[in-house]
Each structure stands twice: as structure tokens, then as C-alpha cells.
């Protein structure tokens, strides 16, 4: 695999992470616990859709094969999607969604921070811009976790359940494959090891403040970056890609 191929694949990974996270957040439309929270969740979804668009455009531009951002988002299937497993997990209740958002945004924060030093100008610009957004997502979700953990017995129980369920998908965030090898060696991307160390520190700090206990890792599941997903992704794509698939000749 050459550097360009690796960069296309990596751009898709970043785009898919944001796209799927956005689609899940969009599911909260008109379902939030407060009107203010409906607005906050749609803000975050819009941030993610914007991030996805930037990276799909970059991947399309690098591919030189007449593909477009929309084709990459709406015409690839579940084995071609390269997002991490965490973002595709169903929303569950508000605690579950906030836990997902917390674990992912902590990761995205350190990833984008590191990519802000990339020697690829597009990735660097993308990471710098997106960093501000995910920092806000991280703050927003951390504040909720702390409220859950110090609010009522019910909120603590729900948050602990979310952590127990989602923790198994967190190793997947830091997986590396030959794409990473190629891009690390050329200074385009970064090793997950340093990101993982920072992530662990921050996540533990917040979880402790939220009176939550990290489960023992009994069931680690990985594979997203290699296109091995949970069954949930196919359903999400079915819905998301419906019009593009049903009317392939139409322009919208």
C-alpha cells in the first residue's frame, strides 16, 4: 500500500467516525430531556456532519476517480465503512448517549490535538478546526456524567450501566493497522499509544469524579478500522442511504 492509498483510507476512517456519530446524535431530534439539550445535541451533530464532509471531500479529491463526498457517504456498504465500533452503538437512554459521547470525544480531542501537527496540510487544518468542536463535546458530556454520578440513585445506576456496556468498545479506538504504519512513518498521522495514555488519564479522572467504576475488561471487541462492525451499522446505513440507493440516477 502506498502513502496515498493509506491517506485515502485514513481520511475515510476520520470521515466515517464523524458521520456515524452525527447520524446517531441526529436520532435524538425532538427526543431530548430538555429543549436546550435538543439544541445542544443537534449542534454537536452538525459539527460532526461538517467534519465528515471535509474528510469525504478530501478522500474524493485524493481518489481521482470522479467520486464525490456524497458517493462516499451514501454508496459504500457496511464492510467498506471504517468507523470505530463505539460510535455506531445504538443510543440507549440519555446516560448511554452521553457516555458514548464522552468516551469518543475524549479520544477525538487527543487525536485531533496530535493531528494538528501532521505534515499533511489538509489533515492539519481539519484537526485544528475540529479540535475546538470536540473539546466542547467533551466538556458537555463530562459535565453530564458528573451530574449523573452525583444526582440521584437512578442517574448513577444508568450511567454505570452505560459504562459497563460501552467499555468493551474502547480498545477499538486505539487499534492500528498497516494504514497507520504507513502514515506514521511518513509523519502524516500519529501512533495511538500516546493518545491512549492521555485518554486513559483523562477518562479515569472524570469517571472518578462521577463516582463510576471502570469494569474489568472481560469482553474486548475490535475491528471497526478494518471494516468489521457490529450488526447495528448495517441498519443505520440502510436508513441513511435509502434515497441514494433507491433512486441512483436522481440528484437532490
Amino acid at each position: 500500500m502506498n502513502t496515498k492509498e493509506a491517506l485515502i483510507n485514513y481520511s475515510l476512517r476520520l470521515a466515517d467516525n464523524s458521520m456515524i456519530a452525527a447520524q446517531r446524535l441526529a436520532e435524538w431530534n425532538s427526543c431530548g430531556p430538555y429543549l436546550e439539550e435538543d439544541i445542544a445535541l443537534s449542534n454537536m451533530a452538525l459539527d460532526f456532519f461538517g467534519q465528515a464532509e471535509t474528510m469525504y471531500e478530501y478522500a474524493a479529491q485524493l481518489s481521482n476517480n470522479n467520486s464525490t463526498a456524497d458517493m462516499l457517504a451514501f454508496r459504500r456498504n457496511e464492510r467498506q465503512y471504517l468507523n470505530c465500533l463505539l460510535v455506531e452503538q445504538p443510543n440507549g437512554d440519555f446516560a448511554f448517549t452521553m457516555m458514548k459521547q464522552f468516551l469518543y470525544s475524549a479520544f477525538a480531542k487527543y487525536l485531533y490535538e496530535a493531528l494538528s501537527a501532521s505534515n499533511d496540510e489538509t489533515l492539519k487544518g481539519f484537526a485544528e478546526r475540529s479540535l475546538k468542536e470536540v473539546k466542547y463535546h467533551f466538556r458537555h458530556s463530562s459535565e453530564w456524567l458528573i451530574r449523573f454520578g452525583n444526582g440521584t440513585e437512578e442517574s448513577l445506576t444508568r450511567a454505570q450501566y452505560a459504562l459497563d456496556e460501552l467499555w468493551r468498545y474502547t480498545d477499538d479506538l486505539f487499534c492500528m493497522n498497516q494504514i497507520d504504519e504507513e502514515l506514521i512513518s511518513t509523519g502524516i498521522s500519529v501512533s495511538s499509544d500516546t493518545i491512549a495514555a492521555k485518554w486513559n488519564f483523562t477518562v479515569k479522572e472524570t469517571l472518578q469524579a462521577a463516582n463510576l467504576i471502570i469494569p474489568e475488561k472481560f469482553n474486548v471487541i475490535k475491528g471497526g478500522y478494518n471494516g468489521i462492525h457490529s450488526e447495528h451499522l448495517g441498519h443505520l446505513l440502510c436508513e441513511m442511504q435509502y434515497l441514494q440507493r433507491a433512486y441512483p440516477d436522481a440528484k437532490w
Binding site: 437512554d93 451530574r147 440521584t152 442517574s155 444508568r158
Partner: peptide, 12 residues
């Protein structure tokens, strides 16, 4: 469904 969230925020 959001009631527990509002209760939690108030208690906090």
C-alpha cells in the same frame, strides 16, 4: 423519558 434526567439535574 427525560424526567429522570431533569430530576438528576435538580438534585445535583
Amino acid at each position: 423519558e427525560g424526567q429522570w434526567v431533569r430530576d438528576c439535574a435538580r438534585a445535583f
